[in-house]
Measured scan of single mutants.
Amino acid sequence: TYTWNTKEEAKQAFKELLKEKRVPSNASWEQAMKMIINDPRYSALAKLSEKKQAFNAYKVQTE
């Protein structure tokens, strides 16, 4: 089980997950979700809006 003390740690864990699963920077949210949804870190960020925000930040960083 994973635990995160801060929102920032949770966001980092979520981005690490995207990186580890090699989600391409041109992937849509739907494509990315299919690649990461079974990992416990997918739940790091509770709100869908937070997940999408972190995903978009990840995409910008990896382009």
Rank of each mutant, 00 (worst) to 15 (best):
D39M: 01
Q12K: 09
W4R: 04
S43H: 14
Q31F: 12
K59E: 03
K7M: 08
L45H: 02
Q61N: 11
V23Y: 01
T62L: 14
N5G: 11
Q12E: 14
K11D: 13
K21V: 06
E50Y: 05
A32P: 00
A10R: 15
K52C: 08
P24W: 03
R22F: 07
K15N: 15
L18R: 00
K21E: 04
K34Q: 12
N56L: 14
L48K: 11
E20K: 02
Y42C: 03
M33Y: 08
K7D: 10
K34N: 12
N26I: 07
E50L: 04
N26F: 09
T3R: 07
N38Y: 09
S25L: 14
R22G: 12
K19T: 14
F55Y: 06
K52W: 06
L17T: 01
A44K: 03
P40Q: 06
V60K: 14
T62H: 13
R41D: 01
Y42D: 01
Y58G: 02
A10D: 03
P40W: 10
A54N: 03
Y58W: 10
A44G: 04
K59A: 08
M35P: 00
S28I: 07
A32Q: 01
A13G: 04
A57H: 09
T62G: 11
V23N: 01
A13L: 08
M35W: 05
A46M: 10
E63S: 14
L45S: 01
E8Q: 08
E30P: 12
T1F: 11
E20C: 06
W29I: 02
L18C: 06
M33D: 05
K11H: 15
R41A: 03
Q53A: 13
A10I: 03
D39F: 01
A10E: 06
A57T: 11
Q61P: 05
K52Q: 09
T6D: 10
A13N: 05
W4S: 06
S28F: 04
Q12G: 08
L17S: 02
T62C: 14
N5S: 10
E16S: 09
E63N: 12
K34G: 10
A57V: 09
T6P: 03
E20A: 08
R22S: 09
A27I: 09
Q53V: 08
A10C: 08
K11E: 15
Y58R: 01
S43Y: 14
A57K: 11
K47W: 06
K11A: 15
K34Y: 11
K11Y: 15
Y58T: 02
A57I: 07
S25F: 14
Q12R: 09
R41G: 02
K19F: 15
K51D: 02
S28P: 08
M35D: 05
K11P: 03
Y2W: 11
K7P: 15
P24V: 02
M35N: 04
T6F: 04
K11S: 13
A46D: 12
I37N: 13
T62D: 08
F14Q: 00
A10S: 06
L48S: 06
A13D: 05
M35S: 05
E50R: 03
D39T: 00
E30M: 10
A10T: 03
Y42Q: 01
P24C: 06
Q53T: 10
Y58E: 03
K7L: 12
N56F: 12
T1C: 15
A27W: 07
K47G: 10
T3A: 09
Q12I: 09
K19L: 14
A57Q: 11
S49Y: 07
R22C: 11
L17W: 01
K15P: 01
P40D: 07
W4H: 06
E8V: 06
N26T: 12
A44L: 04
R41H: 01
L18W: 01
A44M: 04
E9V: 04
M33I: 08
Q53K: 14
F55C: 04
Q12P: 00
P40L: 09
N56A: 13
F14C: 02
S49W: 11
Y2N: 15
E30D: 10
L45M: 05
E20Y: 06
V60P: 03
V23H: 02
S28V: 07
Q53L: 10
D39S: 02
K19G: 11
K51W: 05
V23F: 03
V23W: 01
E63A: 13
A54I: 11
Q61S: 13
L17V: 05
A32E: 00
M35F: 06
E20I: 05
R41L: 02
S49L: 04
P24R: 04
N56S: 09
T6R: 01
T1Q: 15
I36Q: 00
K15W: 15
A32V: 07
K11Q: 15
K11T: 15
Q31R: 09
E20N: 05
E50D: 09
S49G: 08
A44V: 04
I37A: 11
T3E: 14
A13R: 06
M35Y: 08
Q31L: 14
L18V: 02
F14I: 01
E63M: 10
N38R: 09
A57N: 11
S28Y: 04
T3L: 11
K15D: 15
N38E: 09
N5F: 13
Q61E: 14
Y2P: 15
F14V: 01
K15H: 15
L18H: 00
E8L: 07
K11C: 15
A54Y: 05
L45V: 05
L17F: 01
F14P: 00
N5W: 09
K47L: 13
A13K: 05
Y58V: 02
F14Y: 02
N26W: 14
A54G: 03
A57F: 08
N5D: 12
E9T: 05
E20Q: 08
K47Y: 07
E16M: 09
Y58N: 03
T6A: 03
E30K: 14
F55S: 01
R22Q: 12
D39E: 04
K19Q: 15
T6W: 03
A57E: 15
A57R: 10
K59C: 11
K59V: 09
K34C: 12
Y42L: 02
Q31C: 12
I36K: 00
Q31Y: 10
R22L: 14
D39Q: 00
T6C: 07
S49N: 09
F14N: 00
Y58C: 04
S49F: 05
L18K: 00
A44Q: 03
E63Q: 10
K15E: 15
K59M: 06
K7A: 10
N56K: 13
K47F: 09
K15R: 14
L45E: 01
V23R: 01
Q31I: 11
K19S: 13
W29A: 00
A44S: 08
R41C: 02
W29H: 01
E30L: 09
K19W: 15
N38A: 14
S28H: 08
Q53F: 07
K52R: 10
K21W: 05
W4G: 08
L17C: 08
F55D: 02
E16D: 14
